[in-house]
Each structure stands twice: as structure tokens, then as C-alpha cells.
Write a protein that binds this DNA or RNA. Sequence first.
DNA 1: AACAAGACCTGCATGC
DNA 2: TGCATGCAGGTCTTGT
Length: 300
Amino acid sequence: MPELPEVETVCRGLAGVLEGRRLARVLVRRKDLRIPFPPRFAESLTGRKVEKIRRRAKYMLLDLDDGNVLIVHLGMSGRMVVDSSGAPPAAHDHVIFTTDLGVEIRFNDPRRFGLMTLAPREGLEGHKLFRHLGPDPLTPAFTPAVLSAALKGRKTSIKVALLDQRIVVGVGNIYACESLYRAGISPLRKAGTIAGARAEKLVPAIKAVLSAAIAAGGSSLRDHVQPSGELGYFQHAWKVYGREGESCACLESQKVAKAGKAPLGRKGSSPKAAANKGKGVVRRITQAGRSTFYCAGCQT
DNA sequence: AACAAGACCTGCATGC
DNA sequence: TGCATGCAGGTCTTGT
């Protein structure tokens, strides 16, 4: 489920039920998530008050009243489900928190790529999970100059580079595709060529796509992303992701432009037209083992 | 150093 | 119906 907008949405949803609350009970039902739990994890958390919920990259950070931070990553399939009904645990409910008001927050993660651990708030930026991370795209620290400096000399594709959390955090497979589409940049382009005008387009495109997704409550695929159970609806705003074979908006505008000029009728298709065949249709390719969706007509 | 490929794990849709 | 295959929102490790 989670790229930056989904994690942000989950943080905001959980703030209402967790901030200022004490954890009355913590139950670990399955210990083998991506990394081992620290020793006495449940005991350390029990009785602690959650002061604040923050996000760093795709991690959720719960500041506790003992100076520690509960770090949560949702992996590919993780969810935080709020339940006040006392229903029995579902399959893949690996950790269940119960607040002092009796509300349950269940960490559910079928694939178990997620993780949960504890670390001191002091010096958190130097933690193994965080020290290599690049700038958060929604902060002023993420500028075209910063991005092009990070990409300088890199021969990998811009799509693959955007997924590299050392370059910029929070952008996953969906929003990398959507950002490149919005910026009119081909996912195949070498990362090192993103500078100047291209960086000036890409950085605002990333910020705009992520902000719009947050405003929509994230994208819901198979799961609902909000702890309230509400669905995010940004998936309806995707322009290329998951749209292989569909025509891009640029196709219509091309036709309109052509109709306006309408040169003397020329039969058959010119070599140029043949080369352009299918260019206004969304393609799917594989890069670094992941699907990339783009329009070869308007992304160069 | 930078990069590609493989690994981790489960569920679901598809096609035979 | 059953079975095999491929695919899915992310990172981490290994080997070149």
C-alpha cells in the first residue's frame, strides 16, 4: 500500500486515536517481520504515552514519553487498522495495540515486509534505518539544485533513481511514474541528464503529485489506507500507472492540432507517422524488475 | 562507487 | 476444478 502519501495519511488518521493516549496493552502475535523485534518490545511499550506521531520518508515515528521512538514501516502490504468493536484478530494481525480508552490499533501485514522497532529519539537521524536517507520531497530542502546535484553523473535511469531513497525519499513506484508523466520526462532518460530546465520541471511535479495524493487520502489498491476505514481515492487520478494500452491525453491534442493544419491529403502513412505509431498510448516496460508506465508521445 | 540482480513473503488474477 | 505462472505499494544484500 504505502508510498509517502499513504504513510502520511495513516499518520494523520492515527494521530486522532493515539496522540496523548497511553498504550494499555501490546500484543505481538508474530515475531518474524522484516527485522527482529528488540528484546522485551511489548513490555517496553506497555504503559507508555504516545506524545506525537510523525513521518520520516516512508517510516511512521511515534514519540513516546520515555524518550524512545516506535518506528513503523508498512512494507508493501502493511496496514494500521483501528478497531473499537473488539472483533477477534484477523489473519496477519501481527501486532495489536490497545489504548487506555480501549481502542485497538492492529498492524496487519500479509507479506511481512514491514517492520517495527524502538530507538532513542536522541540521535535518531543517525539510526541505521535513517542515516542514508535523502531529503523529504515536501520540504523546502528538496529543490531542483539539490536533485540535480544528487543525480549528477548517474547513469541509471531517472525512474530507477527516483526510487533510490538516498536521492529523495517517499517516492515509490506509482508516484515515480506519475511525477515523470507530469514533468514530461521519459522514465528511460539517464538520471544524470536531469538538470536545469528538466529538474525545474521534475521537482515541482513530484511535490504536486504527492500533495494531491495526500489531499485525496492516498491511493487505495487492494486495501483501504486510512485507519478510519475510509478509502483514499487518488488512484482515480493516475494518468499512466496501471493504464497500459489506454490513450494519453496528448493524443487528442495532437489530432486537434493536425486537424487545424490539415495539409493536402496524403495517403498512407509517412515514415514519420509509422515511427510515431502508438506514441500516444500508455506503455508498460520493466525497469529494475518493476513495472514502469509512461507515454512515449509526451514524455521525452 | 555505482549498478544489476536476487532475496525476502503472501495473495490474487489469469490462463491452461 | 485444479494447477502453474506472473504480478503487487519496498527495501536490503550480494556480486560485478
